[in-house]
């Protein structure tokens, strides 16, 4: 009897959760509602069963998430009896920051990067779990599993702690923190195969359905509510689409797809020729933009 690939990935991730909790004072799980967060939460529950995960969930909200994401979030938290902290950057709330008037880069920086820093400071969390994977983007391939952040939440890629064997170093001085990525060694395909095998609920937006969209410069944007200003002559059309990643709806491109179940999504992925982050507007804000955002404290 041996472990197969998914079982080994699961065992590694559980190992990481346990080390992180044993070595920190105030851990938190950054819950962004997407499929990776769903898998992360599932693994957290497995790691500590029969205890509940000994940390709260933190959602850094931007007020521009898909409505179905928020419904899913609240239903999940209620179903599992977990503690959820929702943080909305109060300055953004006051200014009404949005991607249309302020641009995607500033929108993301103010709501997400600054919002996350505020929330971590306010609750004095010394360790935060995140669902990032090394296969997602070039700068993430260099990320440690336990990634040290300075008291100002900065990541210094040239000065990372060496990480050997499975001996993770979570020690910090007051104000400093560690970001922990239990899914570091998972690929997008692994995530979906695991969702399938473990029957993990995910937001329905990942599956094909008829949705109102407009074509903006080659990106299909879903008109999720009345706040989205339409351009002259622009009329939303109903198309069968789904999403490979989820974020703020005005910044997340849909793909035309008929994949309506997890096995169909997996099958589509095996033959896919584009990467999952391709629909993310914010990744293309300039060369090395993810690296810069990470240095500034973005997840």
């Amino acid at each position: 009897m041996t472990l197969d690939h998914l079982a080994r990935l699961e065992a590694d991730s559980i190992d990481i959760f346990r080390e992180a909790v044993a070595e920190s004072e105030r851990p938190v799980l950054l819950y962004s509602i997407g499929k990776d967060s769903s898998v992360l939460l599932h693994l957290a529950r497995k790691a500590f069963h029969p205890s509940r995960p000994p940390f709260p969930l933190l959602h850094v909200d931007t007020t521009w998430k898909f409505r179905e994401m928020i419904e899913f979030r609240d239903a999940t938290v209620a179903r599992l009896g977990l503690e959820l902290i929702v943080h909305r950057n109060p300055e953004c709330v006051a200014l009404g920051v949005n991607p249309f008037d302020h641009g995607s880069a500033r929108h993301t920086d103010l709501w997400k990067t600054q919002g996350l820093r505020q929330a971590l400071d306010e609750h004095r969390f010394d360790l935060a779990f995140g669902g990032a994977r090394r296969d997602e983007e070039a700068s993430r391939a260099k990320e440690r599993v336990f990634s040290f952040r300075t008291a100002s939440h900065r990541w210094d890629p040239k000065n990372q702690r060496p990480e050997l064997w499975r001996l993770y170093n979570a020690r910090v001085a007051p104000g400093e923190s560690i970001r922990v990525f239990p899914l570091s060694n998972w690929t997008e395909l692994d995530v979906w195969r695991y969702v399938d095998r473990e029957r993990i609920p995910v937001v329905p937006l990942y599956f094909a359905a008829e949705r109102p969209v407009v074509d903006r410069d080659g990106t299909l944007i879903m008109v999720d509510d009345g706040r989205m200003p339409l351009r002259d002559g622009e009329v939303p059309s109903r198309e069968v689409v789904r999403f490979r990643t989820l974020g703020c709806y005005p910044l997340t491109g849909a793909v035309r797809s008929a994949a309506a179940t997890v096995p169909e999504v997996i099958e589509e992925m095996r033959t896919a020729t584009t990467s999952e982050r391709q629909g993310r507007v914010i990744d293309h804000d300039g060369s090395g933009s993810m690296e810069r955002k990470k240095q500034e404290g973005y997840f």
Partner: peptide, 10 residues
């Protein structure tokens, strides 16, 4: 260029 991911490296 595929693997030299960080701007600093490039």
């Amino acid at each position: 260029l595929l693997v030299d991911g960080l701007a600093a490296e490039r």
